[in-house]
Design a protein around this nucleic acid. Structure first.
Lengths: 207, 207
DNA sequence: AGCGTTGTTGACTGTTCAGTACATAAATGT
DNA sequence: ACATTTATGTACTGAACAGTCAACAACGCT
């Protein structure tokens, strides 16, 4: 009936996400988005309702990709839970592969949490961005906490520990590495931080 | 010989810092800085060499204020080191009072690390900002590591633990709360994260 | 008192910004 | 083939932007 769009919506949003990651929200112009995505201004406004709309929908897309993490990385049997937690913690610091067709991370900027970066930049004055970012984080907290509980059931983590508190702590460390990485510290240093955090998780004292 | 300046340099830089914290670097215009500081554009350019100069010098001022933290909060006798670490960790999450005449923190945005926020926003494309922020962090790592060593000497922290690794971890948690706080989580939640982190520090196993 | 030096101010400039409007292109159903 | 509908790209608009400049003000010195 009508002319079909020639672009793939998800590809465009992903390209825009990369641009926002690189330059921040206020640091990227609509022309930058246009250049990064290959779309003209008209198409951007028609399909995504302008700059802010692109951000919101790019964050939503990121959130959806992130939704694969619990199922693909954290879920599983109780006896593998501790190792999955270890693996997630280490890989999150260098960028979790969010989907099969998405490479793990090319560089530090690509590894940091998109939602976290946007929340810190404009979350205080943009309620929608803050809400989206908080949703991302809550989803991860829930998934990590469930993995912690699995490790507790398996006798790997102290059953007296509060699983949600530990999940918050683990994810706070991961978010912290986003900033420490922005200081220019090496991937090796970030790995050490993650390993230190994992080593400190309260194990059961086997006698 | 010549007309003296009518403003206090440090006050102006502190006001500019508040503005940058609130709106980010790219989100604040020179007019915003002018309004926040009370200085005209010409004075800003004459005294600080424009927007970027104001940022660099505001970050330097922040760094200098931060330099008081080791002496005032972390340094002391070995037998108080663990408690000082505890106190620092808890207070850092809600904003360390940087000097006697500076209130601890009015709100979340004011509590977050100024250097960390700027590094995440523009550090990747601004080497000077990244370097300044990394200096801030390194200084804190050194101070916290020294406090950890004091606690180790006093038999409060496992002497086999690497003090610098622990310092990196503690400060990564603190930086992480800057982002978690930006999601809108309550101060009580941030306190729980900090307490969890402190509780997990490797103690000596007394028999 | 007047002069030289430096701080201060607000107006000005060229550029870039986000967002809009409109003309054109591409597809389907008849 | 044509009409209709939607996608696309570009030119345009008013506002906001960073940075400059020249006139003016306040002080120490002679």
């Amino acid at each position: 009936m009508a002319r079909p769009r020639t672009f793939d919506r998800d590809h465009v949003l992903h390209a825009a996400e990369r641009q926002f990651r690189e330059s921040g929200y206020n640091g990227t112009s609509v022309d930058d988005i246009s250049a990064a995505t290959g779309l003209g201004r008209g198409s951007l406004y028609a399909a995504f309702d302008g700059k802010h709309g692109v951000l919101v929908q790019a964050m939503t897309g990121y959130f959806n990709r992130l939704g694969n993490v619990p199922a693909k990385v954290l879920a599983g049997t109780d006896d593998g839970a501790l190792e999955r937690l270890h693996s997630y913690l280490l890989r999150a610091v260098h960028g979790v592969p969010l989907a099969d067709d998405v490479p793990p991370a090319s560089d530090r900027a690509a590894a940091a949490c998109f939602a976290g970066k946007m929340a810190l930049e404009i979350g205080a004055s943009d309620a929608e961005v803050q809400r989206l970012a908080a949703e991302c984080f809550s989803m991860l907290v829930t998934a990590v906490a469930e993995c912690v509980r699995a490790a507790q059931r398996n006798g790997d983590i102290d059953p007296d520990a509060d699983a949600e508190d530990l999940a918050f702590l683990v994810l706070t460390v991961i978010r912290g590495t986003d900033i420490v990485g922005a200081y220019g510290h090496s991937p090796a240093r970030l790995t050490r931080i993650a390993e230190s955090a994992f080593a400190l998780l309260p194990r059961v004292s086997r006698r």
